[in-house]
Design a protein around this nucleic acid. Structure first.
Length: 479
RNA sequence: GCUCCCGUAGUGUAGUCCGGUCAAUCAUUCCAGCCUUUCGAGCUGGACACCCGGGUUCGAAUCCCGGCGGGAGCACCA
């Protein structure tokens, strides 16, 4: 553990905090959460905990074609692992009647219209700042087309409810936007019960108001959506929450695209959503990345509107800070070569389980007189030479075997290299690397006591031990 | 093209609102040394930044103007 804790690197206070702080995370259940998603979850949670408020989880499943039902279970599990406290979970597909009710109010108030133009025509008119023929028709006509949306008169793309904003708005993205559309795709939760679906700008505004949210954190890619939703709030006389838009994060060397991941899994390139090659929270969890390190990372990053580059090195450093202390040490010999060790007596190594915690005890590794040890191929000097078998003895390697050469540590001052080794009776061990490769070797037998925990394979790196029988299997964490 | 957001070291961040104490903070990274029977941890030292140009001012990272650069949006996805 580091002595110097991150001092006052704290998130800025929220503005306009008057009563209870009410926030939300709003995942789309289209795939598992990944490291990028964790930012909004952590930041919401940090603020809610600071102010003693509440945080909702709201599934935004209003596009029946883009839902992976597994998300309804995996996302809450991921949030829980992150330590994000959810006060209550709601699902938008349970709330269609509410969206219809609010939409009808907008229609009756003249703040919305039912359009039966072809989408392209409507968009073209709008881009030219012109109203479509349905925009200003009287309410009787609007209501009859409204009924037509629900009774099957209209099919997909044949009618939609559109919220009026300002057709003259200089930003074309802000002019009139679609609030309800028709879609015959069966929904994983509601089946064919509904075929009129709200779009996010309606559903989000309605829910943010209904849940009485006070502060909303979202990526700045939603900036225009915020402006659109502002019209809904104003049309209905609702008070807007405080919006904070943070910048875009680019995460290098990570596979985060749901569609790429799922095709990769189907094609066998990845073993599943928790494949260590992926940037999902499930994969990080499996690798032994602690959620607290992710929390620290995003807390120190904050929520400025600047675009940022994510740094795995920094995250790993924070995680190492967390796991270095609890991780016991074991020898692991990658690509092993078995060599006879000539000595005049039995030898025993006594190595600490953790160098800074002698009280945890030692690992005893014995080599019988005339027995053998295994070394990593890369550690063998091509032309032979002297080596120090860590915690055991000095040896001379002649190209075929090792010969005992005393046990004086002064050889280290003479430049003799320390190498790791395991006794003959070591256990077969595989380490799943983050590039998808598998490192095969031998680990000292004591590692079987470390199932499900993080250990450090000395000189190799930190790993999480996920299986100990019949062979040991570990997942690489980081150096 | 239009609209909007943003610009402090390799990365992230403090400071910018209310100009001086900022020859600019902290973390990570990288380099060197020390320590250590790990290429981990620890310790010490070092490297690296206010996008550019004008203006206002005794004084600007901080205010004003103009450039330049990066990003987002312009979907019946979220």
């Amino acid at each position: 553990m580091k002595e110097s804790r991150p001092k006052d690197l704290e998130l800025p206070d929220l503005i306009d905090v008057t009563g209870e702080v009410r926030m939300r995370v709003a995942p789309n259940p289209s795939g598992p959460l990944h490291i990028g998603h964790s930012r909004m979850a952590i930041l919401n949670d940090e603020y809610v905990k600071r102010y003693g408020g509440v945080c909702f989880n709201r599934f935004e499943d209003t596009d029946p074609a883009r839902i992976d039902p597994a998300g309804y279970d995996s996302i809450p599990a991921d949030l829980e692992w992150l330590g994000v406290e959810i006060h209550k979970t709601i699902v938008q597909s349970d709330r269609f009647e509410l969206y219809y009710e609010v939409s009808k109010r907008l229609l009756e108030a003249g703040k919305a219209y039912v359009c039966t133009c072809r989408p392209d025509d409507w968009r073209e008119l709008k881009n030219g700042k012109n109203p479509c023929p349905h925009r200003e028709q009287d309410l009787t006509d609007q209501l009859s087309r409204w009924d037509g949306m629900f009774d099957g008169t209209f099919g997909q793309e044949e009618a939609s409810l559109i919220v009026k904003t300002d057709l003259a708005h200089p930003n074309p993205a802000i002019r009139d936007f679609v609030a309800l559309r028709i879609d015959e795709t069966p929904h994983p939760r509601t089946g064919t019960r509904y075929h009129v679906y709200p779009l996010m700008n309606l559903a989000v505004a309605v829910d943010d108001h209904e849940l009485d949210l006070t502060h909303i954190l979202r990526g700045k890619d939603h900036l225009n959506n915020t402006y659109r939703q502002e019209y809904v709030f104003n049309h209905l006389g609702w008070k807007m929450p405080v919006y904070i838009h943070y910048g875009r994060v680019s995460i290098e060397d990570a596979q985060l695209s749901t569609s790429n991941m799922s095709t990769g899994i189907r094609e066998g390139k990845y073993t599943g959503w928790d494949d260590p090659q992926l940037g999902t929270l499930a994969a990080l969890r499996r690798r032994g990345v602690r959620p607290e390190s992710i929390r620290r990372y995003w807390s120190e990053t904050g929520l400025k509107a600047v675009d940022i580059e994510f740094s795995w090195k920094t995250l790993y450093s924070f995680n190492r800070d967390l796991i270095d202390d609890p991780s016991n040490r074991y020898f692991f010999v990658d690509d092993p070569v078995k060599l006879k060790l000539e000595s005049s007596s039995d030898l025993t190594a006594r190595a600490p389980l953790h160098p800074t915690h002698p009280e945890r005890g030692i690992r005893e590794l014995g080599v019988a007189k005339g027995g053998s040890v295994c070394l990593s191929r890369v550690d063998l000097p091509e032309k032979g030479g002297r080596l120090r078998l860590k915690d055991l003895c000095n040896v001379v390697y002649d190209g075929t075997a090792l010969r005992y050469d005393g046990n004086d540590l002064v050889v280290l001052k003479e430049g003799v290299r320390i190498v790791h080794w395991v006794p003959e009776a070591a256990v077969g061990t595989e380490v799943l690397m983050t590039d998808g490769s598998v490192r095969k070797g031998l680990a000292e037998h004591g590692i079987v006591a470390a199932k499900d925990s993080s250990v450090q394979l000395e000189r190799f790196g930190f790993v999480r031990v996920e299986q100990v029988a019949p062979t040991v299997r570990c997942v690489f964490t980081h150096r």
